[in-house]
């Protein structure tokens, strides 16, 4: 496992991973330790942070820390669902396009181009605007984000696959009678796996940001607590213009930290495995 020990020598990678794992731990374990229900009314609304309610109380009389911990959990789930779907679609379509070529390639490229040109945030809004508000839970919102944000990465996987297809060992594999599917699975996926990881990290963080955006606009999450829903409630009750910072700053800070940590992980993966491309 020399690759892992090498990676752990890169400060950027370690810092990013540490911050990200801390946030994941907060979302997974936090609700088990801080046992306050995020939906119960615990006191008068807009009580500022105090020892009994470390992050204060929101517009509906609920504990903000409990909301935040469940919100992190919800947002991480949305990110995982959306990034899983988008990664699956882009990896499948990108490699298929490169390996099969011809008409398959042309059709996939045109579809992905359309998905790149039409902004995914708008597509998501159109999709979500017509979904019944009662049905918009983690799975549905994650699905909507996932199926609209794969276009750019499909192109990335295609071009990386194309450059590998030029290598001698692929010609050997073709000569020895390997099927195209087996070439994708056995030869290409292992080589581009760092890029796959990096793209998962970026899809994950952009999905979390997208959920927040969708929910603030009013077409996102309604059923499960996420960072977006906390901010939506804060915006709906005009907390920001009343200077009630404790419902606004914690979820946005977590959002920025998720982005920065995964960005660090993604760029250090990319720099480590393809040092020539790094410009930083």
């Amino acid at each position: 496992m020399s690759i892992l020990t090498d990676l752990f020598r890169i400060p950027k990678f370690v810092a990013g991973l540490a911050i990200f794992l801390t946030i994941v731990a907060l979302g997974l374990v936090g609700p088990l330790i801080y046992r306050v229900s995020p939906t119960d009314i615990v006191g008068p609304r807009y009580t500022p942070p105090s020892p009994s309610h470390p992050l204060g109380i929101d517009a509906l009389g609920r504990d903000v820390l409990a909301q935040l911990l469940y919100g992190i959990r919800g947002s991480l789930l949305v990110g995982a669902v959306a990034a899983g779907i988008a990664l699956g679609l882009s990896l499948f379509l990108g490699t298929i396009a490169a390996v099969f070529g011809g008409l398959v390639d042309k059709v996939i490229m045109v579809i992905s181009e359309v998905f790149i040109i039409i902004p995914s945030l708008l597509l998501m809004m159109v999709l979500a605007a017509y979904l019944s508000p009662g049905a918009r839970n983690i799975w549905l919102v994650g699905f909507v984000i996932g199926i609209t944000s794969w276009g750019g990465w499909a192109r990335g996987f295609r071009s990386r696959t194309m450059s590998i297809l030029q290598s001698e060992f692929i010609k050997m594999a073709i000569l020895s009678g390997a099927s195209r599917v087996s070439i994708i699975l056995r030869d290409i996926v292992p080589i581009i796996s760092p890029y796959i990881l990096a793209s998962f990290a970026m899809l994950f963080t952009s999905a979390i940001t997208a959920e927040v955006g969708l929910t603030i606009v009013g077409v996102g999450m309604t059923k499960d607590i996420t960072l977006g829903l906390i901010l939506y409630i804060a915006q709906l009750y005009a907390n920001i213009t009343q200077g009630i910072w404790w419902t606004v700053v914690p979820p946005t800070l977590v959002m920025i930290l998720i982005y920065l940590s995964l960005y660090l992980v993604a760029i250090s993966l990319d720099e480590y495995f393809s040092p020539k491309l790094g410009t930083a």
């Binding site: 940001t209 955006g213 920001i240 200077g243 700053v249 946005t252 960005y263």
Partner: peptide
């Protein structure tokens, strides 16, 4: 680049209110 404009906006509004 990593901070969405609206998050930045939220902080600016909080600052303006304070």
């Amino acid at each position: 680049q990593g901070t969405p404009a609206y998050v930045f906006g939220m902080y600016l509004v909080l600052l303006a209110v304070a």
